[in-house]
Design a protein around this nucleic acid. Structure first.
Lengths: 334, 334
DNA sequence: TTGAAAGCGCTACCAA
DNA sequence: TTGGTAGCGCTTTCAA
C-alpha cells in the first residue's frame, strides 16, 4: 500500500500539516522536525499523490501542446523546444494531434476546463474550425502559427513579409516565372493563404503579372505529397525558373522529383523552403529557407502562458518574432 | 464558479451518485432521470473535474512517452503513432525528453508512482543509467528501442540481424571496405553497440578482416554531427566503398558532405541508413534503409501497457517486430 | 512553529 | 433504479 502524509506524520510523530510544510518548503520548519520528517519520508518511500494535490490546489502542473501533424520534423523541433522550456519551468507537456479533426481541439479545451491541464498551446490550421471560436469560458491558451484573430494570446512570425522577401530573393537574378508549391485546395489553411498573399505582393512589387498556373496546389504538406504534386505538374507544364515551397518538407519532396526528372538545382530551377528544419541544411543541394528561433518561440509562448494563467482577464497579446532568410545552394545565383 | 456534481444533482432533483451514473454511463439509469440530469449538465455547463476523478479512481487516463531526443524526425514519427493509438484507446500522452539526463527518467517513474500518469513508455539510450534499474516498485512500463533486459515488457526489432543484413547487402556487389558511421565514444548507447555487433558478424560471415578504422565514431545522431564526423574522417582516410549509417539522420548528413566533396552516391560509395524516416525516401539519392511498421510498434506497445496495468505481476514480455531492408538508389549496384 | 479539522469533487459502498 | 455517506490524499484555514 502506498504511504500518505498521514503515515509519514505518524511515523515522524508530527501532524500531516507539518509533513506538507516540509515537502513544499514554503513554510519554515525547524531543523529537527525537518530531519525527522525527511527520515520518515525516506523510510516509507513516500511520494505525494499529484491527483490529490491537483484537486486541492486547482492546478495540475501540466500544459497541453496541440499541433496539426506530429509526424513532421517541424513538429518535432517545436515540441522539443516547448518540452524543454516547460520542463525548466516546472511544467509537464501533454501532446495532442489536432490534424484533421477539429473535435480534438474542443476536447482539449474541455480537458483544460476539467482541471487536468493548466494551459494550452494551440497551433490550429484554419481558424474557422478552431476551438477558440467557441468563445466564452476559455482556459489559458496561447496560439502559435498563422492565425488571424485577436481574442487570445498569439506568437508567430510575419509570414506575409517572409513570403514576400523570399519571392523577391528568388527573383533577384532576373527570374520572372516564379512558382509557389503548397497552396491548398481541399482544406483551407491560414498558413498557405498568407504565404500566397506575400508571394503575390512580391510579384506586384516587381511588376510581374500574376499567373495562376504558377500556384501549384498540394494539400499534403509532406515530401510525398509535394513529389507527387510537382511530378504531375511537370508532365503538363513547363519547368518554372524558381519554386518557393511553403515548407521545407515540401521542398525536400520537390528536390527529390526534380533530381529524378533530371532537372538541376539551382542551375535549371531555384528552390526555397520555409521553417529551417534541421535536415534542410543537409539536403542536396542545401535548402534556402526562412528561419526563426524556435527556442525563442518556446520561451515567449511559455512567458505568455504563465502571464495568462496569472491574469485571465489581461488583454490578448500578439507577439511577432523576427525571421531570417537563409540563402543556401538551392537558390544560389550562378 | 465551476459547477460540481452536487450543483447538477440539486438542479436535476437527484443525488450526486445518479449524476455520476449518467456521466459515466456504466450503471443503467431511467430515461427520464437521464434527461433531467443531462439538461442540468447543459444548463450549468458542468465538466467533471478530472483531478478529483483521478484521486478517487487512482487512475488519471494519462500515459507518458519518454524519448531520448524529441527534435528528430524519428521521434516525431514514433510520437505521432503513439499519440494516435493512445488517443483511440482513450489515453492522453505526456511527452518527456530524457536525452542527456538520466534524472528525467527517474522523475518520470516518480511521477507515475505519484498517480499523475498511469503508465510509461520508455526509450532509454543506455540501460546502465536507466530508471528501470532502480528496481523495486515500478509503475507499469513498456520499453522500446534497444535494451538488453528482461525485467520489464519490451517491444523492438532485431537490430543485430538488421545490421548484419544491411552489411551483407552492401557487400553483395563484391565490396569489402564497408564502414559504419555512428559508433559512440562519449556515451554508451545500446543501439550503437548492437548494430556494431551485427556489422562485425556480417564481416565475419564474409571472411572480411575487421578494420577498426572503418568504424567511424559520431556521438551526435543528427545530420550536423555526421556531416562533421565524416568530413573530418575523409580528410585523413580513404573513401570507403560503402557506409552503413546507424540512422537515416546520420545518412542524410553523410549524403550532404559526400555531395559537397564531390563524391558520387552510389557510383563512388554506397550509403545506407536505418529507421526509414519519411524524408529518407526523398533524399538525393533516395536512401536505402531498414524499415519497420511504426504503427504496429505503437499498437503492440499500447497492448502490452494495458496488459501490464491490468496485471502488474505478469511475467515480462519481450516482443520482436519484423523489419524490412528497403533498397533504394543510394545503394543501387551499378 | 505546529496541530486539528474541514473540504476540494468525485465515486464505491451499502441501503432502500 | 436511486439515495446517503464515507473517504481517496492533500492543503488551507484557524488555534494553540
Amino acid at each position: 500500500m502506498r504511504s500518505t502524509v498521514k503515515d509519514v506524520a505518524a511515523r515522524a510523530g508530527v501532524s500531516p500539516k507539518t509533513v506538507s510544510n516540509v515537502v513544499n518548503g514554503l513554510v519554515p520548519v525547524s531543523e529537527s522536525t525537518r530531519a525527522k520528517v525527511e527520515a520518515a519520508i525516506a523510510e516509507l518511500d513516500y511520494i505525494p499523490n499529484l491527483s490529490a494535490r491537483g484537486l486541492r490546489n486547482g492546478r495540475s502542473g501540466v500544459i497541453a501542446l496541440a499541433l496539426p501533424d506530429l509526424g513532421t520534423p517541424y513538429s518535432a523541433e517545436v515540441a522539443h523546444q516547448i518540452v524543454e522550456v516547460a520542463h525548466e519551468q516546472g511544467w509537464s507537456v501533454q501532446l495532442e494531434e489536432t490534424g484533421h479533426d477539429p473535435h480534438r481541439e474542443l476536447d482539449l479545451v474541455s480537458k483544460a476546463r476539467a482541471n487536468l491541464i493548466d494551459g494550452l498551446i494551440l497551433n490550429p490550421i484554419a481558424l474557422d474550425v478552431s476551438a477558440i471560436r467557441t468563445g466564452g469560458n476559455l482556459p489559458p491558451v496561447v496560439m502559435i502559427g498563422e492565425v488571424e484573430q485577436h481574442q487570445v494570446d498569439h506568437v508567430g512570425v510575419d509570414n506575409f513579409s517572409a513570403a514576400r522577401d523570399m519571392t523577391l530573393a528568388l527573383a533577384a537574378g532576373g527570374r520572372r516565372r516564379i512558382a509557389i508549391l503548397g497552396t491548398t485546395e481541399n482544406r483551407r489553411t491560414a498558413t498557405a493563404n498568407i504565404r500566397t498573399m506575400g508571394y503575390r505582393q512580391a510579384l506586384d512589387d516587381l511588376g510581374i503579372d500574376h499567373d495562376p498556373h504558377l500556384e501549384i496546389a498540394c494539400d499534403e504538406w509532406i515530401p510525398g505529397g509535394s513529389a507527387r504534386a510537382l511530378g504531375n505538374y511537370l508532365r503538363e507544364n513547363q519547368l518554372p525558373e524558381a519554386i518557393f515551397c511553403f515548407t521545407d518538407s515540401l521542398a525536400i519532396g520537390a528536390l527529390s522529383v526534380l533530381h529524378l526528372e533530371g532537372h538541376r538545382v539551382p542551375q535549371d530551377v531555384l528552390i526555397a523552403g520555409f521553417d529551417d528544419i534541421d535536415h534542410g541544411q543537409f539536403a542536396v543541394p542545401a535548402l534556402t529557407t526562412i528561419s526563426f528561433d524556435k527556442r525563442a518561440l518556446a520561451e515567449e509562448v511559455m512567458r505568455l502562458l504563465r502571464g495568462r494563467m496569472a491574469d485571465r482577464k489581461r488583454e490578448p497579446v500578439q507577439l511577432t518574432l523576427p525571421y531570417q532568410l537563409i540563402s543556401r545552394a538551392s537558390s544560389a545565383a550562378h
